[in-house]
Design a protein around this nucleic acid. Structure first.
Length: 802
RNA sequence: GCCGGGAUGGCGGAAUGGUAUACGCGCAGCACUUAAAAUGCUGUGGCCGUAAGGCCUUGUGGGUUCGAGUCCCACUCUCGGCACCA
């Protein structure tokens, strides 16, 4: 019978109690003690949308919470902060839809998010909370932009860019998915516009090389490599009497197969040729160029199958390899955005050129022997003069060298990565700190005048004209030039949502000291981030942009590490019970507040970590969450059991140490599901066996990162007066584990016919003779000849018979 | 099309080349209850068998090995990323 002090498990009560205790006692204030080793554990900070959190959002935060609590107990000083990525279109659109100022909406949403996070019992140091929309924060976002400008990495461009007609703003390449706006799904148009652009391409090589040293998921590294898209090839200049045409190719070995050339319609050379009078069909060409201009990116992609183009008659270019004169086409299957915007066409060895050549009856000359045409594979060269017989690989080098000697070619590495279109024609973002002066031109705002604050306005809806709503605020726009004091206007474009998140991890190290980007000492104490956790959708946006800015700041000497995030883990999405993405639209949203009220925060935490591998997606299951609650209730009951023994049985002790090992490894490797399974197995043992005080104490310690409230409560009930959060993590006894008896299978011809429990390290003779005594083994050996005996110590015995 | 994952009971999933199906959910039977819920106990991959035990089983087909979910080859399906990228 349970004694009179027995209380049933009541999470509502104890969770409130411990959350208040942690707050009142500042338990999770970041430690300054630099004697301790550090761990910087970071979540991708959310942006506070109007709809609040659903149960999928906290999954990553639960993981970093467990991770940080674990390392704190292991004696590390831990930095585990949280903040708000509050600029950007969603916040602004929400504000417009609900007719409130974005600042007001953000404040309200932050409040709501914070409440939702707090009831889950996270160990965030809220003294370090940051918000990208705080002028003291974005002052430094603007400052970084000025440093990029100073370093020649920011420039104004008037090239056509992606324009979203619904969101009424320009977009970066990364914001376009299959020709549609990533955010709203509208078809993206091409618009020539004045834009601020960052030269991320200059960092392509460094961004690829830097991936080497990172402990990131393979898939993310591959995505980034893919996105940056490095290819090695040659830059070759083709000459005609009046023009030079420069092309990039990865297949210089096919140069003898060039039978025509193609220029993208947007190529500036087209216009130059048309005015030169050498062109006989200028009208026709001009018409084609006009036609393609009106095609959107998407239309161009849809037209993929049917290649179109028009020959520029009267112009011929000499193939330097053959000496042959070849025609020149304008065709939109050649993109202005990659390489030089012009290609040497090798129809025999390129599928696109092949299709085009077929359609326009152009010669197709095989120069690589590699099967049926068009063949894109490497092979041996044919029809290639002195290079005949060489394999492609070697020919690429030799031909490039030969072209170089002739002064018309060189080896060249090119990238798919586009420069970063950095301006948005919207209100809710960091103003770009630039002043346009009538006499001095582009003038950076002096650093002492930062931040350039976003003015308070009544109307912040997008204008749709390609100008930011800020352009209408005359008293803000009109300023005097910092150089000549003459009349000047502010830049009215704002920065993209990704700006503030490209350096926020630096601000957490010293959030109050906004006089510097980051304190040098503090930066050295904490960087790099040891564990970064967030969604996979950021693979080619945030994670590339942040690496780019960080690498730039490193090159400029502002930070001490070349990479910001050493280890990265992905959160797998939680979908609704119907298997669909959790969304209002499907009515399948599960609110974490409701789960906490019904089952408790500890149950939510344990359940989400137990659902499956951390980076895999999982479906929410209201039926399954009961299992997590039962697990905690059983622990509660076990802790109520009177302690009968101070001496521990070997069996229980072994079970405990096995569990400590598995939980320890589970946390370090982000395999929380198997860690929890290990603890469940221990519960199964402790329910049936007597155990000492030490056993249950150690169990509560390893449970505490997962279910901190119940752990603190039980810890206190056992007479401890200090928070469990800083109690040393138990160590498992490796010797105990390796010396324990082992049960090994006895196989005959690889089939299990029995098992034996023997002392660890038992020798073959002992095991074999014991095995031969087993009746079932004898039965299977009868009348058979033993050919071979395989013995793996502590693992198995396999008798091979014929 | 190219690049990268993945496929294990009714379900989520576990397994350094060494007893496949741990742990949980669900389900069934039993106990408690007037009853239900909750809780506890027992069972739970398939087939044969009263049992002991046997045979089969990790998407498909081959291979390496004493031994393969795990390694190799070919394929099917599936999920992500990229895609007229020269």
């Amino acid at each position: 019978m349970l004694d009179s002090t027995y209380m049933p498990y009541n999470p509502t009560e104890i969770e409130k109690k411990w959350q208040k205790y942690w707050k009142d006692q500042s338990i999770f204030t970041t430690e300054d003690n630099t004697e301790k080793p550090k761990k910087y554990i970071l979540d991708m900070f959310p942006y506070p949308s109007g709809s609040g959190l659903h149960v999928g959002h906290p999954k990553g935060y639960i993981a970093t919470d467990i991770f940080s609590r674990y390392y704190r107990m292991c004696g590390y000083r831990v930095l585990h902060p949280m903040g708000w990525d509050a600029f950007g279109l969603p916040a602004e659109n929400y504000a417009i839809a609900n007719k409130v100022h974005p600042r007001v909406a953000v404040e309200k949403n932050v409040q709501r998010f914070k409440e939702q996070l707090e009831i889950i019992g996270f160990d965030y140091d809220w003294d370090r909370e940051i918000n990208t929309t705080d002028p003291q924060y974005y002052k430094w976002t603007q400052w970084i932009f000025l440093q990029l400008l100073k370093a020649g990495l920011a420039y104004e461009s008037h090239e056509p860019i992606n324009w979203c007609p619904v969101d009424k703003t320009g977009l970066a390449n990364e914001d376009v998915e299959n020709g549609r706006c990533e955010r709203c799904g509208a078809l993206v148009e091409l618009r020539p516009m004045r834009q601020w652009v960052l030269k991320i391409r200059d960092y392509a090589e460094k961004l690829i090389d830097g991936l080497e040293e990172l402990d990131w998921p393979h898939s993310i590294k591959e995505s980034q490599r893919n996105w940056i898209g490095r290819s090695e090839g040659a830059l070759i200049t083709f000459k005609a009497s009046n023009i030079d045409l420069s092309v990039f190719t990865t297949r210089p070995d096919t140069i003898f197969g060039v039978t025509y050339m193609v220029i993208a319609p947007e190529h500036e050379l087209v216009e130059r040729l048309l005015v030169s009078k050498a062109v006989k069909n200028a009208e026709e060409v001009r018409e084609y160029v006009e036609q393609t201009k009106n095609k959107s990116e998407l239309q161009r992609k849809e037209d993929e199958k049917e290649k179109t183009g028009v020959e520029i008659k009267g112009i011929q270019i000499t193939n330097p390899a053959t000496g042959e004169k070849v025609p020149v086409f304008v065709a939109d299957y050649v993109l202005m955005g990659y390489g030089t915007g012009a290609i040497m066409a090798v129809p025999a060895h390129d599928e696109r050129d092949f299709a085009f050549a077929k359609k326009y009856n152009l010669p197709i000359r095989e120069v690589i022997s590699a099967g049926e045409l068009p063949s894109i594979a490497d092979g041996k060269l044919v029809n290639s003069g002195e290079f005949n017989g060489l394999p492609s690989e070697e020919a690429k080098k030799k031909i490039t060298q030969w072209l170089q000697e002739k002064g018309i070619g060189e080896a060249k590495v090119d990238y798919k990565l586009r420069d970063w279109v950095f301006s948005r024609q919207r209100y809710w973002g960091e103003p770009i700190p630039i002043i346009h002066c009538e006499t001095c031109g582009v003038v950076p705002v002096p650093e002492k005048d930062l931040p350039v604050e976003l003015p308070a306005v009544e109307h912040y809806e997008p204008t749709g004209t390609g100008e930011s709503p800020l352009a209408n605020i005359e008293e803000w726009v009109n300023v005097s030039c910092p150089n000549c004091k003459g009349s000047a206007k502010r830049e009215t474009n704002t920065m993209p949502q990704w700006a503030g998140s490209s350096w926020y991890y630096l601000r957490y190290m010293d959030p109050k000291n906004t006089d510097v980007l980051v304190d040098k000492e503090k930066e050295k104490q904490w960087m790099p981030v040891d564990m970064y956790v967030g969604g996979a959708e950021h693979a080619t946006r945030h994670l590339i942009y942040a690496r780019f800015w960080h690498r730039f700041l490193y090159d400029q000497g502002y930070v001490s590490t070349s990479e910001p995030f050493m280890r990265l883990q992905h959160v797998g999405l939680i979908s609704g019970e119907d298997g669909r993405k959790m969304s209002k639209r499907w009515g399948n949203v599960i609110n974490p507040d409701d789960v906490v009220h019904e089952y408790g925060a500890d149950t939510l935490r344990v359940y989400e970590m137990f659902m499956g591998p951390f980076s895999s997606g999982a479906m929410w299951s209201t039926a399954s969450i009961r299992g997590a609650r039962r697990f905690l209730e059983r622990i509660w009951e076990i802790a109520e059991k009177p302690i009968n023994k101070e001496e521990v049985s070997d069996e229980v002790n072994l079970a405990l140490h096995r569990t400590i090992k598995r939980v320890t490894e589970g946390i370090e490797q982000f395999r929380f599901n198997t860690g929890i399974a290990a603890m469940m197995e221990l519960v199964n043992v402790l329910e049936k066996k007597d155990f000492s005080r030490e056993v249950i104490q150690n169990f509560i310690l390893i449970l505490s990162p997962f279910a901190p409230h119940i752990a603190e409560e039980l810890w206190q009930k056992m007479g401890n007066t200090e928070s469990i959060a800083y109690h040393p993590w138990p160590k498992y006894d490796g010797k105990l584990l390796s010396e324990a008896d082992v049960t090994i299978p006895i196989q005959i011809n690889g089939k299990v016919r029995g098992e034996l429990t023997v002392a660890a390290g038992a020798d073959q003779g002992t095991v074999e003779s014991k095995a031969r005594e087993l009746p079932n083994v004898q039965k299977h050996l009868e009348g058979k000849e033993v050919r071979k005996v395989i013995y793996v110590q502590d693992r198995l015995l396999n008798i091979v018979v014929s």
